[in-house]
Amino acid sequence: MNDSTRPPATAITTNITLRAGMEEPFAAWQSRFTHTATKAAGFLALDIAPAFAGSYDWRIIQRFRSPEALEGWRTSVLRAHLFAELAPMRDPAAAAFDDETVHSLDPLSCVTEVIMTVVEPGKEGVFRAWAETIQANQSNFPGYMGTLVQAPVSDEMQYWTTLVRFSTPAQLDAWLGCPARKQLLEQVEPHIARWKSYRMESPFAGWFPETGKRSPAAWKQSALVLLVLFPVVMLEIKFLSPLLAGRHVAIATFIANAISVSLVSWPLMKIAVLCMGWWLRPSPVRRWRREALGACTMLALYIIELAIFMLVF
């Protein structure tokens, strides 16, 4: 079967809510679940993450190479046994809201370390067992925000990909540099051919500096940038474009972009972040009320901006 006719990889998301105090048992369960899922036929990737730092709501995304492989995993005895183990850890009051659906990928409010590992031939079992151990350790580390594990996708790309997420760069660095992780890396070193890692951070990190809390969600960052950038561009069209009309389009565009970036970077984004900080990084207390109020506030500000420029232009 060639690439054009191969069925697309498919996945299922299991949404669960934990009981308070179940963090440590759930961390151990995650490592067992990861170990079992990665050995299943057709396994492609596993993504386990909370809704936000400190949340009891978690999603478990299980991706497989075909609908048939996914169905085999979904109905397997091993998976059923794992979820039976999980049952006492789940919040019975929230059971009605737990479900399983086709996954959707939403940007997480966190910083991610991408680790690519090439395992020595025949050592895959050793690597899986080691991955189970390190998963149990990192799941209990402060700021942990979930892990994605992806098996080699083809004969040409024989490396395992692991995405490790933490709330802040400082918390991620603390885990990456801790003695426990260094000891674990020394244990697995004889069984891997090579590995490398790199950091994935927010595209607007300079405008949303770390404050000891998690970074704002990517969509919130983009929404606030749009709120600030739109009036700058509209004012440039109204007042700057006529002044630059006689210049070459490349020069005029460069000047306009330079002014836009300067104004947005300082002071407009600093003011916007200060004013909307309660929504960008809401506390867990009454979080969803703040989220809804913030979204309505942003929508109202968009409407006000549009109304003003529709009247002026």
Results as ranks from 00 to 15, higher is better:
S4R: 13
R6G: 05
P7D: 06
P8Y: 04
P8D: 13
A9Q: 14
A11S: 15
A11E: 10
T13W: 02
N15W: 04
T17D: 10
L18D: 00
G21C: 02
E24D: 09
F26W: 00
A27R: 08
A27S: 13
S31P: 00
T36K: 07
A37V: 03
K39F: 07
G42S: 02
A49H: 13
A51P: 06
W58L: 06
R59C: 09
Q62P: 09
R63E: 09
F64H: 09
S66K: 00
S66V: 01
E68F: 05
A69D: 15
L70T: 07
L70D: 06
E71P: 03
E71D: 12
A80L: 03
H81N: 07
L82M: 12
F83H: 11
A87E: 15
R90E: 09
A93G: 01
A96F: 07
E100A: 15
E100S: 15
T101W: 07
V102F: 04
V102L: 08
P107H: 12
E113C: 01
E113P: 02
V114R: 06
I115W: 12
T117N: 12
V118Q: 15
V118G: 01
V118P: 03
P121A: 08
G122T: 04
F127L: 09
R128I: 14
R128W: 14
W130C: 10
S139L: 03
F141V: 01
G143C: 08
G146F: 03
T147H: 06
P152D: 10
D155W: 03
E156M: 01
E156Y: 08
M157R: 15
M157C: 14
W160N: 00
P169I: 06
A170M: 08
Q183W: 04
L185S: 02
V188Y: 05
V188T: 05
H191K: 05
H191L: 05
A193T: 11
S197R: 07
R199C: 02
R199F: 00
S202F: 06
P203S: 07
P203V: 02
A205Y: 10
F208I: 08
E210P: 05
E210M: 03
E210T: 01
T211A: 12
S215R: 12
P216I: 03
K220W: 03
L224S: 02
L226W: 07
V228N: 03
F230C: 11
M234S: 13
K238M: 14
K238C: 07
K238V: 11
S241Q: 14
P242R: 00
F254S: 10
F254E: 15
L263C: 09
V264F: 08
P267L: 12
L268T: 05
K270R: 14
I271M: 08
I271P: 01
W278P: 01
R281Q: 07
S283L: 13
R287A: 01
R287I: 04
R290K: 15
A292G: 06
Y302M: 11
Y302E: 02
E305G: 07
L306E: 03
L306V: 14
F309H: 02
F313Y: 10
